[in-house]
Amino acid sequence: MYKAIVIGTSYGGLEALKTLLPKLGSGFPLPVIVVLHIGEHNNETFLTYMDSICTLSVKEAESHEKINPGYVYFAPPNYHLLIESDFTFSLTTDHKHNFSRPSIDILFESAAWVYTHRLIGVVLTGANSDGAQGLKMIKDFGGMSIVQDPNSALSPAMPRAALKIAKPEYQLNLEDIAVKLIEFAFKRK
């Protein structure tokens, strides 16, 4: 039984998430935690918009906040997002990683330590290779790994890097990723 989903994306990610996240309907039983490279500026408008098109509640992850199902949490710009073993968030202003803060690798790795095999990692469209190492760790820890099919991605570099390094279980387009996530999320075993 899975406990959480982590998603990483950069260039083209906004569009991809607009397609993917609204497909996770009410009663979706897992928290979804997202790193989207969006630059240093405020992402308030973007979060409000996402919230308006999603059934799940969309918000920025806050320091010490409890992680709950029913929510999509976004890492705040300019901070790395970490998961604590009591299922709360913490933030750091540590150096950029893969030229990124927040970094997908950093979220994925800290999530893998906490959720181990009960974690689903997803890498979507993007122009760099952040997320590949993190997804590999999720897979090594027995979690489920999914990468957007590079042919269907606005920017294929990130999915390609993740495919090469993590050798994920699934390589799918966005529609099928949504289907898979729903299938895994409701699986009881």
């Binding site: 970490l82 998961i83 604590e84 913490s90 750091t92 790795e109 800290s110 330590w113």
Partner: peptide, 8 residues
């Protein structure tokens, strides 16, 4: 201190 940070 934050355990996740220290672990990293």
């Amino acid at each position: 201190y934050s355990k996740a940070h220290i672990k990293r």
